[in-house]
């Protein structure tokens, strides 16, 4: 009686769990098999490619179309992520661990920054970069250097925009974390002769690793997936990141391009998954703290 009762509950539990797995994985499975078929409309969406219709051609085409976008996205997302996390950490240290007059007011400004919607700043930001701070013209001499192109100036504008937008949320995350650190430990470091800077570098920064994992994953995903700022600030030019490239893919072809679109989506999403896998453990630790 008792054991059968338990078995009944177990069966129910596993049924629900398998249902959830299917719910989450089915779209991915459909995307994957669609990208591998020569004619996606010839068979059911979730059926694997039939013997004669398997192809990697769509992946090849998608990769060729997105290659420069991938490079641009990496050039954009890696520095922007590191800068926003690093600056957020420093700002949080200055606003939390150090004591000075007026810090509450400054922190309030940071918090307000989190709640400014993208749409509200689109026009001012594009005007700012186009009219008031045309980095492409200002740094013109740099583009003569080998390996650098004029569109890198646009990428730089985008990096700065993303960093500015990312600092408030990073600061908030780090501040929450730093508040939990022992105040006596910081005082001990002060008595040990450490300056505000060495306390940050030798005590606070090494202890921030879990929170860096959280902010790096979060910011990288945000910046990598952003389409709005990329479209408004640079449009579909040479410097366009992968998200902009993805919107164009398949549209110029005669067929509907399901396969190449699916393959492109996978290619564009891959780096964010790699980041999750790399920092997953520290991420869990950071979220748990």
């Amino acid at each position: 009686m008792n054991t059968s009762d338990l078995d009944g509950r177990r069966v129910g539990l596993y049924a629900v769990l398998f249902g959830l797995v299917a719910f989450y994985l089915l779209p991915l499975e459909i995307g994957l098999v669609t990208s591998l078929k020569t004619d996606p409309l010839a068979s059911l969406p979730f059926a694997p490619p039939a013997a004669g219709s398997f192809t990697l051609e769509e992946w090849g085409r998608a990769f060729t179309a997105l290659k420069s976008g991938l490079v641009n996205s990496l050039l954009l997302a890696v520095p922007a992520t590191i800068l926003s996390a690093g600056l957020g950490s420093m700002a949080a240290y200055g606003l939390t661990t150090l004591q000075w007059r007026g810090q509450v007011g400054v922190f309030t400004l940071f918090i307000a920054g989190i709640f400014i919607p993208y749409q509200a700043v689109l026009l001012p930001v594009s005007r700012f970069w186009a009219t008031y701070a045309p980095l492409e013209e200002w740094l013109a001499v740099l583009w003569l250097l080998p390996g650098l192109e004029a569109y890198h100036g646009e990428l730089l504008s985008l990096i700065i925009t993303h960093v500015a937008y990312g600092i408030p949320i990073c600061t908030l995350l780090f501040r929450t974390y730093y508040k939990e650190l022992s105040g006596e430990m910081v005082e001990a470091a002060k008595l040990d002769g450490a300056t505000a800077y060495t306390i940050y570098r030798r005590v606070i920064l090494p202890l921030s690793v879990p929170m860096f994992a959280v902010t790096l994953i979060y910011q990288f995903t945000q910046i990598w997936n952003d389409l709005l700022f990329a479209l408004v600030i640079m449009g579909p030019g040479d410097g366009a990141p992968v998200t902009v490239g993805l919107t164009n893919i398949g549209s110029s072809l005669t067929n509907l391009g399901f396969g190449v679109k699916m393959a492109g989506a996978f290619i564009a999403a891959l780096p964010t998954m790699v980041v999750y896998v790399l920092f997953g453990e520290q991420f869990a630790e950071g979220v748990a703290s």
Partner: peptide, 9 residues
Amino acid sequence: FQSYALYPH
């Protein structure tokens, strides 16, 4: 210090 305040890392 009461909490010892050692540097954990």
